[in-house]
Amino acid sequence: MVKKLLVALVACCAVVAVSSIARAQDETEKAIEKYRQMLKEDPWSNPGLLDADRGEGLWTTAAGPNKASLEKCDLGKGPGVVDGAFAELPRYFADANKVMDLETRLLWCIEKLQGAKREDLVKRPYPAGGQPVKDLGAIATYVASKSNGMKFAAKLDKAQEKVVVDEGQAIFFRRQGPHDFACATCHADSGKRIRLQGLPFLSEPKEAQQVVGQWPAYRVSTTQVMTMQHRMYDCYWQMRMPELEIGSDVSVALISYLIKSAEGGDIAAPGLKR
């Protein structure tokens, strides 16, 4: 697989070097797509699956002050039910009186079942560059992979859920910070790029359906799995905002809005990204 990657990368570079400038853009896009295709052809080549395996182990391992596993964690389909649970998230949980996405629910279970402190859990939830995804992210990758091949089917029709989706849309379009950036600055039009990176039109269901189901995703550029909460955090970094807290109302609302926009789209997690 490493060899395949290298060949594809060399092909990318070679294409840029030899093409006329006018054609370089299209050629580069094609080479990157070919590289993605090669990795897709062998579904077991995705390194994110290692983290899904690690997550499965963590799910069943007693941990925390309470020395409890997560096997009684209710992800919405009953305690311990993992298969298909991600496909129906986010949802309103009466026990927490909150709408929760996958990672926020896992945080809640780790806190309530295993006895961990929330402030410790939210302190440094994401890995440094090159480091593997942290335990919470590995568990999220495992749970998401157990909805692989299903379609996003979160109902999001309860009053509490509708409010959160609407707030997510408002936050998506909310401009702030020294650059006046909103999510919509980059993700409210079709066929646009930042440098050479294509940008999905996330408020458009057709495009959201194609990409939202690929998270958590293994990112080749950082050699680690990035979860959806981490993805939101990274976007706010780029928007020149401070560090977005995992499980915050803002991140949950945005994720709810994106998944609503992607309703009916295929789940292919962990995905594979640039």
Binding site: E167, A170, I171, F173, R174, R175, Q176, G177, P178, D180, A182, Y236, R240, M241, P242, E243, L244, E245, S248, D249, V250, S251, A253
Partner: peptide, 30 residues
């Protein structure tokens, strides 16, 4: 929404907090 934004970045140092606020133009465009 403004309150949710102000609460979502709890580690922000005080000098960063003005970044949560919107001027009139940002509000209208949003």
């Amino acid at each position: 929404i403004d309150a949710a934004i102000a609460a979502a970045f709890p580690t922000a140092p005080p000098e960063w907090r003005p970044r949560f606020d919107q001027d009139e133009t940002m509000k209208v465009c949003s």
